[in-house]
């Protein structure tokens, strides 16, 4: 029973982790709390659904198109709103509110276009299930886990080993200085948004397949959790987002299995507050030094 819950928790946790990585990457580079991330997640799932049902093309082609489009949407949010704000040297808060507005626009556009009723979503990863002891593990879960792992490793390599990652780090430290060093800051930031769009789309579609349905509340329900996962691990730290997402997923499933389904969110969020009380910078966050 416990093993089963942990497996389920891992699956949902790895989805949180995927979206949280996108969120935390944007945060790491811009120190911006990106509220539109959860909208990208929903957008991705719906676009996959749209292309698959409306055009009848192969599912994975539809998935691919959706990934590209969600990436483009992420790019658009940066290009047409946030970049203008950066040019004006606007306060950080206005960036946050802008993403909140963008999120409202995207969410409601989807609602208007698709309607608010939930839609059934075919599971293309349904290759049966296997038994590990008493626990049942579906192939969907395994594929989600593997996909999440591959993406996390790829992104970690990009951010921590490659030149682009160094550029991101430099922008995070000081945008102007990074620009002077010849880094095309706008390009790197756009790239970050595109990557976060990709991740959100992949996660959204996989969750849609896992639950076999999509609805217009899926974005708002995951929004806080992504944020919580990222904060729990320490905002801006990739492995932190992964661990935060997994911990949150596992805590959630275990709480709803053994304690109470109704109070699930309350308990897992209370744990977050407790962790922040003891470790104000999250599990892996660096301590901010206040220089006098």
């Amino acid at each position: 029973m416990l093993v089963q819950q942990i497996v389920n928790g891992f699956t949902i946790g790895s989805v949180y982790a995927l979206v949280a990585i996108g969120f935390t990457m944007v945060f790491g580079v811009l120190e911006l709390t990106n509220f539109s991330n959860s909208s990208l997640y929903m957008f991705g799932a719906y676009i996959t659904f749209l292309f698959y049902t409306a055009t009848g093309i192969h599912f994975f082609l539809a998935f691919g198109i959706s990934i590209v489009l969600t990436g483009l949407l992420g790019y658009g949010i940066d290009r047409f709103a946030l970049r203008q704000l950066r040019k004006k040297k606007a306060p950080k808060l206005s960036g946050l509110i802008t993403t909140l507005g963008m999120s409202m626009v995207v969410d409601n556009a989807i609602m208007v276009f698709f309607g608010t009723d939930s839609k059934s979503f075919e599971n293309f990863l349904d290759f049966g299930k296997i038994y590990i002891g008493s626990a049942v593990v579906t192939w969907t879960q395994i594929i989600i886990l593997i996909a999440a792992c591959i993406l996390m490793i790829t992104l970690s390599v990009i951010t921590y080993r490659m030149k682009i990652g160094k550029a991101m780090g430099a922008i995070a430290q000081n945008q102007d200085a990074a620009k002077l060093m010849g880094i095309d800051t706008d390009k790197i930031i756009s790239l970050t948004f595109i990557i976060s769009g990709f991740l959100a789309c992949i996660a959204g579609t996989m969750v849609a397949m896992y639950y076999r349905s999509i609805d217009t509340a899926m974005g708002s329900s995951i929004g806080i959790k992504i944020f919580a996962a990222a904060v729990l691990g320490g905002v801006g730290v990739l492995p932190g987002a992964v661990v935060g997402g997994l911990v949150l997923g596992i805590v959630e499933t275990i709480v709803s299995a053994y304690i109470s389904t109704g109070y699930r969110d309350a308990i897992s969020f209370s744990i977050l507050i407790l962790v922040l009380l003891v470790m104000p910078n999250g599990l892996f966050g660096k301590k901010a030094i206040n220089k006098v």
Binding site: A81, Q84, L85, K88, A90, P91, S94, G95, I97, T98, L100, G101, M102, S103, M104, V105, D107, N108, A109, M111, V112
Partner: peptide, 21 residues
């Protein structure tokens, strides 16, 4: 009414672009 929240969001974005404070 369908477009209400949409307009609301768009307005917010425009306002932030024009007057970030």
């Amino acid at each position: 009414s369908e477009y209400r929240q949409l307009v609301y969001g768009a307005l917010l974005v425009v306002l932030m672009l024009v007057r970030p404070d």
